[in-house]
Amino acid sequence: MAASPYLPTERFARWRKAKSTAVTCVLVLCALAVIAPLFLVIYFLIVHGSSSIDINFFTQLPKPTGEDGGGMANAIVGTMELLAMASIVGVPLGVLGGIYLAEYGSDKANDWLRFAADVLNGVPSIVWGMVVYLMLVVPFKTFSAYAGGVALGLMMVPLVMRTTEEVLILVPQSYREAALALGVARWKVIMVIVVRTALKGIATGVIVALARIAGETAPLLFTALGNNFWNHNLKEPIAALPLQIFAYAISPYDDWHRQAWAGALVLMALILALNITVRILSRDRTHNH
């Protein structure tokens, strides 16, 4: 056999192989380290949270420390109300903006709008709280559920806009052409044909955005403020699960800590439920096409 020059020595070849194996091991360990926190968080949520959850948690108002049987009923309902208000603000703006991007905008304008949406996405959530505080809390001289809903809703806009654009672009051009050829007005084509075809995708995008904002605390601190009682008027402060978890977690009382864990478990379950819904919706979508 012809001898080949520059063959590495046996030792050098072994060294290279050992180095490669070592790197492989390090990579595996890193991957384990990355997913470990998830399991540690979920484990402690279940351990600490489930022992504090009972029927009272879902039906009662918070009670002062030392009294048995308090719950977070108002915070759970408050979070739902806030999410609903956020949707009222964020979904129309986001969807219409997405329609503009997909159906009307010039390439150059779209590039800028997309870029702006990504920049807006990077605005720290606490900043939204401050801005809405100046817009809605100072003029009306009170913290309010409205302010909290608007803060969360504004955070939804760039998210919903981008996903709406993406799903609308996927609607085949031939659908639009076929409808336009029938003499249907363009806006009707968009609303009746295009948006309806993509409705499931848009809904998925909205739920993704809701899952993202459901756990947000910082934008609510100086808008919704939090409330230990039922909110009977949206012009007044309202409780929210994340706010309540925060307040209880940094309190010095053990029974409140337990309530914080329970609240965290419920919040996490809500967010997981939203994420699972997204998964089911998007699985159907991939099956249909």
């Binding site: 997913i35 540690l40 914080a260 919040l267 994420n275």
Partner: peptide, 20 residues
């Protein structure tokens, strides 16, 4: 699993941070 980790809200990480 990594997507789920991304879904955990900040306040829950804080709670876990304080007590665990």
């Amino acid at each position: 699993a990594i997507e789920m980790l991304a879904a955990v809200p900040s306040v829950i990480f804080g709670l876990w941070g304080i007590f665990v």
